[in-house]
Design a binder for these strands. Structure first.
Lengths: 152, 152
DNA sequence: GGTGAAAACTCGCACTT
DNA sequence: AAGTGCGAGTTTTCACC
């Protein structure tokens, strides 16, 4: 889908606050309510807008402990990779998992209550997945920046 | 704020789709529309719900190239840390930045168009920040999992 | 892309448990 | 303290210009 400058501005606005009314958006974009409405529908249908979500404060739900783990598999056979990715995706503590270049194969982000919960997760969930060679954990001391908004 | 099981279910629903109507939520939670409405307002006012955003597909806006960079500062004096954090936060390509334990000081996630855009970012933006000692880039081969929803 | 109108939703109010 | 039902005012949605 080709995006013009109005679409880009609209995407920026919705990435910041998706609950603002079409009317509020129409004023910011100098368009009619319907024009904005139809642009949004088009962005949704074409898949540019993936979903609308509420972001919650981790601290408010007792999940303040964030850890990044590097993971190396023992081997990179197709079956091992597929199985690891399937198992790790199932884990609710894992917010994200990326297959990356470099010394390790994967980088995952884990969100839990505290160090004890992380130990539980590491011992009982993560390392019980087959074919994991080694892991290396990096504890988050401070979240300096976090955004879901991509610049368009 | 203390969350009961209905609040938790509500948070889970809103983390998945914040645009569903209060009526749809009330049916899923077996409550009246007003009861749901008031629970949501309470979650918003108490700060449990931080914001409502649209998540967009990076590929659709030509930002498919994701890189994680480890960063080490030359020194950890208060001023250096403050300045680095301030500067890195300003960079639009930086989606997240975490102060972490381990061999490196920071882990940042960068989202750009392609390798060339990343080179530009690295040379002209990131490494032009003062006091950076060394960086180590890990290119994302595949995003295995990504979610903004914390399990409550 | 704009207009207008019906359908659906939001949200304050009065009342109940 | 928390839930229900009502209803005026908005907002969404869509056929038509």
């Amino acid at each position: 889908m080709i995006l013009d400058s109005v679409d880009k501005k609209l995407i920026a606005l919705l990435q910041d606050d998706c609950k603002q009314t079409t009317k509020a958006l129409s004023l910011k974009l100098n368009l009619s309510v319907t024009a904005v409405y139809e642009r949004i529908k088009k962005l949704e249908k074409s898949g540019v807008i993936d979903k609308y979500v509420a972001l919650i404060k981790k601290e408010a739900v007792n999940k303040s402990f964030v850890v990044f783990c590097h993971i190396k598999l023992v081997q990179h056979t197709h079956d091992y990779v597929v199985q690891f990715e399937k198992e790790v995706t199932k884990l609710e503590e894992v917010m994200s998992c990326y297959h990356i270049s470099g010394d390790y194969d994967y980088l995952i982000q884990v969100v839990v209550k505290d160090m004890e919960a992380f130990r539980e997760f590491l011992v009982n969930k993560l390392t019980s997945i087959n074919h994991i060679g080694s892991t290396h954990s990096m504890f988050v001391i401070n979240e300096v920046k976090y955004t879901t908004a991509v610049t368009v």
